[in-house]
Simulated scan of single mutants.
Amino acid sequence: MSNTMVLLLSIGPLAMVLAMIAAQRVSEVNDAYTGEVTGRWVSSSTGTYGPTGHCTMRIRTDEGRELTIEVNSRTYQSLAVGDRVVKEWGRRWPERSE
């Protein structure tokens, strides 16, 4: 195999993974909904750099969809079960509804 072919075969899977991550981020930002927090929890895992916490929330939208989303710690601490939330188009995280 030529060096060019080896390079293409090694970079191809990495490019696909990066494209999938970018598509997921775009879909999260482009989503908009209103609803209620029905559950929340923190899970942790230990990796190369030590323990990592993952804050997760379950939201039931007014349209009846059940969403399970990973949020940052600030959003997690600001919302409780039963809170009404609104997620506007272009924003990363839902916020408490006024």
Rank of each mutant, 00 (worst) to 15 (best):
M1I: 14
M1S: 12
M1A: 12
M5S: 14
M5P: 00
V6Y: 11
V6S: 10
V6E: 07
L7Q: 06
L7R: 06
L8V: 00
L9E: 07
S10K: 13
S10M: 15
G12Q: 10
G12V: 00
G12K: 11
P13F: 13
P13V: 14
L14A: 04
L14I: 15
A15I: 03
M16R: 08
M16C: 08
V17I: 08
A19N: 12
A19F: 14
I21Q: 15
I21C: 14
I21S: 12
A22F: 10
A23T: 09
Q24L: 15
Q24E: 12
Q24A: 15
Q24N: 15
V26R: 15
V26E: 09
V26D: 05
S27E: 13
S27Q: 13
E28S: 11
E28R: 07
E28T: 15
E28K: 08
V29P: 00
V29E: 06
N30A: 08
N30K: 05
N30R: 02
A32M: 14
A32T: 02
Y33G: 01
Y33N: 04
T34A: 08
G35Y: 03
E36T: 12
V37L: 08
V37D: 04
T38K: 07
T38E: 00
G39M: 04
W41C: 06
W41M: 09
V42Y: 01
S43H: 01
S43F: 03
S44G: 12
S45K: 04
T46S: 13
Y49P: 02
Y49G: 07
Y49S: 05
G53Y: 11
H54D: 11
C55M: 03
T56F: 05
T56N: 06
M57G: 07
R58A: 10
R58C: 00
R58T: 02
R58Q: 09
I59H: 09
I59E: 01
R60M: 02
T61N: 04
T61V: 04
D62T: 15
D62A: 04
D62K: 07
D62M: 05
D62W: 00
D62H: 08
E63L: 13
E63K: 15
E63G: 14
G64E: 03
G64I: 09
R65A: 10
R65C: 06
R65L: 08
L67H: 13
L67K: 11
I69D: 09
E70Y: 06
V71L: 12
N72K: 01
R74M: 15
R74Y: 15
T75C: 14
T75D: 13
T75H: 05
Y76T: 03
Q77S: 14
L79Q: 00
A80F: 10
A80L: 09
A80Y: 09
V81W: 07
G82T: 05
G82L: 01
G82C: 02
R84Y: 00
R84P: 01
V85Y: 00
V86G: 06
V86S: 08
K87L: 02
K87R: 13
K87W: 00
E88L: 15
E88H: 13
W89Y: 15
W89A: 13
W89I: 10
W89L: 14
R92N: 04
W93F: 12
P94D: 04
P94N: 11
E95S: 12
E95T: 11
R96W: 05
S97A: 12
E98M: 07
E98F: 00
